[in-house]
Nucleic acid binder design. Sequence first.
RNA 1: GCGACCGUGGCGGAACUGGUAGACGCGCAGGACUUAGGAUCCUGUGGGGCAACCCGUGGGGGUUCGAGUCCCUCCGGUCGCACCA
Length: 804
Amino acid sequence: MSSVPPYDPRAVEAKWQARWAGDHTNEPDLDRPRRPFYNLMMFPYPSAEGLHVGNMFAFTGADIYGRFKRLQGYDVFEPIGFDAFGIHSENYALQVGTNPARLIPKNIETFRRQLRRFGGMFDWRHELSTTDPRYYKWTQWIFLQLFKAGLAFRKKAAVNWCPKDMSVVANEQVINGYCERHPDTKVEQRFLEQWFFAITKYAARLLDNLDRVDWSESTRTLQRNWIGRSEGAELVFTTAGGANIAVFTTRPDTVFGATYLVLAPEHPLVDQLTAQEQRSAVNAYRREVQAKDIVSRKVGDKAKTGVFLGSYARNPATEEAIPIWVADYVLMEYGTGAIMAVPAHDRRDFEFATQFKLPIREVVHTGEPLPSVAEAGVLVHSGEFDGLSCPEAQRRIVGWLQAKGLGTPQVQYRLHDWCISRQRYWGPPIPIIHCDRCGPVGVPEEDLPVELPFIEDFRPDASGVSPLARHKEWYFVKCPQCGAQGRRETDVSDTFLDSAWYFLRYPSTEFDDRPWDPARTTTWLPVSTYIGGNEHAVLHLLYSRFVTMALEELGHLHFEEPFPKLRAHGLIIKDGAKMSKSRGNVVIPDAYIQKWGADTFRMYLMFLGPFQEGGDFRDEGITGIRRFLEKVWTLAHEAATPAPDAGPGLPEAVQRKLHQTIRKVTADTESLDYNTAIAAMMEYVNLVREQGGGSRDGVEPLLVMLAPYAPHVAEELWSALEHDRSVFQASWPSYDAGLAAAGDVEIVVQVNGKVRGRLTVSRGASEAEVVELALRDESVRKFVDGKPVRKTIYVQDRLLNFVV
RNA sequence: GCGACCGUGGCGGAACUGGUAGACGCGCAGGACUUAGGAUCCUGUGGGGCAACCCGUGGGGGUUCGAGUCCCUCCGGUCGCACCA
């Protein structure tokens, strides 16, 4: 055996990374691809700590898929970028006292270095950052398109306000009513005029299209639940004073049991319906509710609170006068902000009625104790509808009330309109100018981008207005419509808007005069495969779908679903817990890559467990992968200088195993089962070593299969076998199903379900043959032993079972 | 509280439509080579038993010739949601 050079991953990886960059290996011809394949992964937020193994796990899994597609003959476009606006960057900047505009470029530089080092197949020509004015110019442009189409509008909405931060905080930053950063400070509720996108107009389409996309079922279920469609009816309760109170209910069949009404504290009719003697109690209650932060109002303890308004409404079914209450368990954002309470058949209403001694009337008899919420029973105490089943009664009662003008069938969605306003500094300014005469006016497209000014005092102050409003030269501007003095909108937009369209920009990053080039877009979009974490299963994906859908409708795109195929990867866990800075268990990959090489580390991460489920990061097992690559290294060098006595062709066992391995690695890589694909390659390598070592025919297909997983070492060994061109110009090996299936099989012989013997027979042997052989077996005979065989079960090529 | 997913050797994990449980890897034990080995190679490795065999996929029950896989129930864990009328 000739001498094999040592495997030095650092040298090999540096060499091939330089070669790929120099040869433009990872840069497909975007204008004239033969078989375009857009391999997208969720772009990272460039944190100050750098890329961690969770990111790398996700990117490696996505990169393997892209490289696999490349080897199957596709022109793969695999871009990367940075989602760098947002509250995380801003809070970190506030903490260290440096403007985020200065911090982010450094963070991006670190990420870029780490991403190059791990060997992703990225097309760096098309890198983007959401903070780049060349990018957010078009984020603003999209806002304007939606604004012009009437899909962006303003309304008042509650926000969490931290008096210490002097700023708005997100729901996730409120911990039990206190600010995350100031645990002694209670968060308040404030009502501010905010910008919304009318995503609810698309609720039905967003829901229906889910049936037609190829996504993991778990992700689709999350989206369905989030959209939350429910069917029911809107019913009208009238008051003596002539007010109409509309309520939404999914159970119109229980309307005879509605013994009181509840309005949300913010309901516009509360003032009008409050009786004089109750006014101070009602006002006090409303103030109390407003003082609570949003989260504890929604999440908080389950004890019900509320106040009687002192007035009554008429139940449209019974015509009785029933009391009207205000309570915060009714939410203004859902339905009409008012409910008919049916305490006998709704847990929440039951709890409330019990507490405030309100009447409880059973109208659906199920035999269960109250409250009985099931729709399995017959109507009672419901006049002419007594005896009907619930579904039947729902139809009939809605029809009856509809005829009286007091009800209509209706579908409600849980989905809210998307609030895109952020009273913050670090985001793209919303491109609107407020004019006293013209109202909110869109910034003319030729004036985009509205640049975010670099300001030193980006800290919020007690005024409650955005830091941007303090910059007069930026803030005051002429109204584009009438030329009068106007003021810029000082809210910036939500980061979810930045990321709701980045995949549209990637193929067209070099064009500054259009957000995306029509020809490029037709060629490359929609995305071929999108791989990302399930933490974005709802918001990011839903917002991206909405933006795409709206842009399609406005004629800017030719498709309405951006991600026809989506796969969610699992999470990397460390010491049984999610990696997070607060737990202090974040692992940075750099030291591992330095020590073991990127190839070993990539494969190690994929070998931890199923990609779509995640795994527990411990570094003990990493040497196993390194040993495997060393073995491949040796085999390939043996193949490069074959022993003189090497015969032609592969030993039969190797040949068969090779075809079985190709079959398994192909199927497993396609389905993202990378851990078992790696195990299959290991088995093959073990067999080749047993059977005499490396040969060209045995090693070359292995190197191609290994290339997506360990691209650098695969390139190095491919070139050691005297190939001039990149291994990624090779094609994925095919297998011969006949060869893969050939050979003998071992059949298990059972007696009464217990394994008593094993037989080796040729594949496809007949039952009679196997039975005869089995009965000759010593240990099988011992258990059959003259007893009559009552039944024989034979499973071809697998098992024979005698029941005696 | 509701919903989804999951419990397999010392560890990470394999196991197609019910059909050889523990692939592959780590670790561990013994051996070889070596001045040395935390390098490499070989052998073994679920538990019990000298053996024939017996037991074994969170606990209990069921269906079946046969259950990690299907059904019921209990226990434990992870994730998601948060009064959605």
